[in-house]
Amino acid sequence: MNKTAATFCRLKAKKSNLPSQGSVFLAALAREGRLQVRRRGDLLNPLVFFALVVVLFPLGISPTEEILAPVAPGVLWVAALLAVLMSLDALFRPDLMDGSLEQQQLSGYSLAALAMAKLAVHWLLTSLPLILLSPFLGIMLYLPWEAQGVLLLSLLLGSLALSLVGGIGAALTAGLGKSGVLMTLLVLPFYIPVLIFGTGAMQTAISGGNALPHLALLGALAALALTLAPWAIAAGLRITLSGE
């Protein structure tokens, strides 16, 4: 696949009555939705992983409220972050293996937009259930009530950045048969700011402060990721495709 071919396809798409970029994006959304709903097990696994990791902490540290409550924000955030990261690992691999990713590249439509459709569906079906599950795990860790709302909000904003940045790692490691550990090594350092501001927001809320500045910073991170990550993900996918 070379550049001329892509340009040619794009020209062809313009001339004939091929669907527009927007309708292709919607079609990709629908396709992703169908595909990911069919893999029901893959949808459930991150939730179970999240719950299990959280359960390990009372067992490993102490079940008393005095010890669990202060560490609850960190535990919840780290567990959620790892669950999102693990679930992203296989985001592009099936499409790469069955050749549909190459077809998407050849189609002449924006690869970044198609990857975004994938990530959007993934976020909706994996990260959102995870976020909705988190208050219940928060109760089990004696998370103070006043922090529950901030937990939801911070995870909601933070998971956007987590998904987008994780997508870059997933794109680069899609060509590898198994990449769990490598992907973790690549992406986790980039998750640190999200973790810091996410837990910071919750700790501020627990101590009675205003969590809004932290949430704003999380939003800024998400916005930055949203502007830069699609480009990087598309570049990563092209690099992976060039090696196939």
Binding site: L172, S179, P189, I239, T240, S242, G243
Partner: peptide, 23 residues
């Protein structure tokens, strides 16, 4: 680690370049 894991060399080179830029 990324360079070690990816083959062929060309792909590994470009992937590492992208990683460094993102970093």
């Amino acid at each position: 680690a990324l360079r070690e894991a990816l083959k062929p060399q060309d792909t590994a080179a470009k992937a590492c370049a992208l990683m460094a830029i993102v970093g």
